[in-house]
């Protein structure tokens, strides 16, 4: 199969647009440390809402649409949760052997690393979706890119909040988050050159990414939210959590509108 150069260029341009969106969290660098310290728990709550919303409203239904079998998809989600549990155990084990230190000597919590791994897989899947839709039709590629950008911005904000909570400095959080977002390009290139293999791998990668998000949100991020127990933190974090879910539902409506139009 020959692929038009304009299709490859379009997919690469779309992937770079998604990566550029991950730098939207750069605003964190302009905030004063005490303001950032106050904002981080709300960003973590937003991350929980967005990650769970993305998994339950977006990724799992999409995987069921592609695969057809609900039980197989649920089993793969569980495999994803289990895989991320093992991965976290490995990260913690390595951490306990004092190999894991930041350049400044501060400690990085495993939740930050898990978040980076989950985000990298998610962005790889986004790359597959973008290139797959560009191969089908450039107009569909554009609408898919818009939908991915729309859910990427709040997710990147939440991810940076989680990375800051995990011990990274604001600069490191923005940079590492950006490096992870670059996995969208290998995902697209993989699809452009091995489109059939990539299409079939989606039914596996989507629920695994969903399992990773559920695991990170439920086991790493939600316990962090329980640390400050005051009424403002309760109401603010609940609102941020709910906003994340509502936003992801809105994105699904937006995607359906784009596809219908």
């Amino acid at each position: 199969m020959t692929i038009a150069l304009s299709t490859i260029a379009g997919a690469v341009a779309a992937c770079l647009a998604v990566s550029l969106c991950s730098l939207s969290s750069v605003f964190a660098l302009w905030l004063k440390p005490e303001v950032l310290h106050r904002v981080v728990p709300y960003l973590v709550a937003l991350a929980v809402g967005v990650l769970l919303g993305d998994a339950f409203i977006h990724l799992i239904p999409d995987a069921i649409d592609r695969h057809g079998s609900v039980s197989d998809v649920c089993l793969t989600v569980l495999v994803g949760v289990f895989g991320f549990f093992v991965l976290e155990k490995l990260v913690r084990w390595r951490h306990d052997h004092n190999v894991d230190t930041t350049p400044s000597g501060g400690e990085i919590m495993p939740l930050a690393k898990m978040n980076l791994i989950g985000d990298a897989i998610h962005n790889f899947v986004d790359g597959i979706l973008i290139a797959g839709s560009f191969l089908a039709d450039p107009a569909l590629g554009l609408t898919t890119t818009l939908a991915i950008i729309a859910h990427e911005i709040p997710q990147e904000l939440g991810d940076v909040g989680a990375l800051l909570r995990g011990g990274y400095s604001p600069k490191q959080a923005v940079l590492y988050n950006f490096y992870c977002s670059l996995t969208v390009l290998p995902g697209a290139i993989f699809t452009l050159f091995l489109s059939q293999l990539a299409e079939s791998s989606l039914s596996l990668l989507l629920p695994i990414a969903a399992g990773g998000f559920i695991y990170i949100a439920a086991s790493d991020l939600i316990p962090v939210l329980h640390e400050p127990c005051s009424f403002p933190s309760l109401s603010g974090q609940t609102a941020a959590f709910g906003f994340g879910i509502v936003f992801m539902q809105f994105i699904v409506f937006f995607e359906q509108f784009l596809i219908a139009s």
């Binding site: 379009g10 770079l16 647009a17 600069k171 940079l175």
Partner: peptide, 25 residues
Amino acid sequence: MASLDRYLHIIGIELLLILTIILPL
């Protein structure tokens, strides 16, 4: 469908924007 030239312009502008943001970091 946009032309190859248009896509290459977009890629160039995106690369410049990305590099402008990450260089100070």
